[in-house]
């Protein structure tokens, strides 16, 4: 692996100067070998080949005991992971490029978009507008609003994929968060003449979660319920303790999810066929982002069909549920 022609040739090299690239690596390996309490170790180092090329190497060490001297010795296997690490670095770099590009473009797009929205708003205030003109302006404003959402979705996903989104837990009152989300969505709920209610369990403990991100998750799931349920529908939100987790669900009596779409619902860019009847264009990014963000917080999300109400043949609707652990799991002292 190191390109030396023979064992003798290798032994002529100065380990510290020629082979180990970082001085700390060698000390770490020696310390691991000398450590009397561990029977195995695994550590990653950088080694320089005879021709100068640097390799990423994972050392797997196993203690052998030699009863004669009683001195433990290690058998060490060196695994060349250079190609793998390079691929990982390239992926990370590509994701960062994508994220930087999306960031840049999003900010550039937002300025003229704001211009359109604000000018439309002013135009709508003109007294004595003909009915048709008023409708044109309202439709234009709605299109502009959709653009705002699309840009936000793109930005969220790009940031999340490049690792820039941080899940910062704090104590969160789900009832409060839900109320705030329902308040924000009230205009849409009224516009579609839905009934939206919150029916939490008697006692819902506070949960450790990122309030901001969780709020966006709720907004996303509730917006979908509102959008994909025909006018005059019923949307119910519930929350409660299930074992060591908090479950939060939003249930609607809308169009549901067709059979072939169910396993792909949370895939990036995926949109179910029936979604097109509501909105011809859509990113298919919302649920993908929701699943990733919740995973970052140690949670998960899933879909179920709404339980049918006695003999109904049409789609009973959807239930989207997310679960969060009551306490974030601690792995090596770092909260997950």
């Amino acid at each position: 692996m190191l390109g030396y022609s023979s064992k003798a040739d290798l032994l002529r090299a100065d380990l510290a100067r020629d082979i180990y690239v970082r001085s700390g690596d060698r000390s770490a390996v020696i310390a691991a070998i000398l450590c009397r309490t561990e029977t195995s170790f695994q550590t990653e180092v950088s080694w320089r080949r005879k021709d100068g090329l640097v390799l990423d190497v994972v050392l797997h060490g196993r203690r052998l005991s030699r009863p004669r001297r009683g001195e433990p010795l290690f058998e060490v296997m060196a695994e060349d992971v250079t190609a793998r690490r390079r691929a990982e670095r390239e992926t990370a770099a590509a994701l960062k490029l994508q994220s930087d590009f999306v960031s840049f473009v999003s900010h550039q797009l937002r300025t003229p978009l704001t211009g359109i929205r604000w000018m439309l708003e002013l135009a709508q205030q003109t007294p004595g507008l003909p009915e048709e003109t008023a409708q044109c302006l309202a439709d234009a404003r709605q299109s502009a609003d959709r653009l705002v959402g699309l840009i936000a979705d793109m930005l969220n996903v790009a940031r999340c994929e490049s690792g820039k989104t941080r899940w910062v837990p704090e104590e969160v009152d789900l009832a409060e968060l839900t109320a705030s989300v329902m308040h924000e969505l009230r205009p849409q709920v009224e516009q579609r003449e839905h009934q939206m209610s919150f029916r939490p369990d008697a006692h819902v403990p506070r949960v450790q979660a990122d309030a901001n991100l969780l709020r966006q998750v709720m907004l996303n799931l509730c917006s979908n319920a509102i959008k994909y349920t025909p006018v005059g529908g019923e949307i119910t939100i519930t929350a409660g303790l299930r074992g060591a987790e908090i479950w939060w669900s939003v249930r609607d009596n809308g169009m549901g999810v067709p059979l072939e779409a169910r396993s792909r619902l949370f895939e990036k860019f995926f949109r179910a066929d029936n979604a097109h009847t509501v909105e011809t264009e859509g990113t298919g990014l919302g649920l993908y982002w929701v699943r990733r963000i919740l995973a970052q917080g140690g949670g998960r999300v899933w879909w179920q069909p709404a339980p049918a109400k006695g003999g109904a043949s049409a789609s009973p609707g959807s239930v989207f549920t997310f679960a969060l652990p009551l306490q974030p799991t601690l792995v090596q002292g770092v909260a997950q």
Binding site: R110, T111, T114, R117, W118, E121, L122
Partner: peptide, 28 residues
């Protein structure tokens, strides 16, 4: 029109009272 958390935090740290992402707010 930046929604970068670092911009928002820096503005808050410097004493701005509120931070608006223009494209998400109406003139009203």
């Amino acid at each position: 029109n930046s929604s970068r958390p670092s911009d928002r935090e820096e503005a808050q740290r410097l004493g701005a009272k509120e931070y608006f992402v223009k494209s998400e707010f109406s003139l009203q």
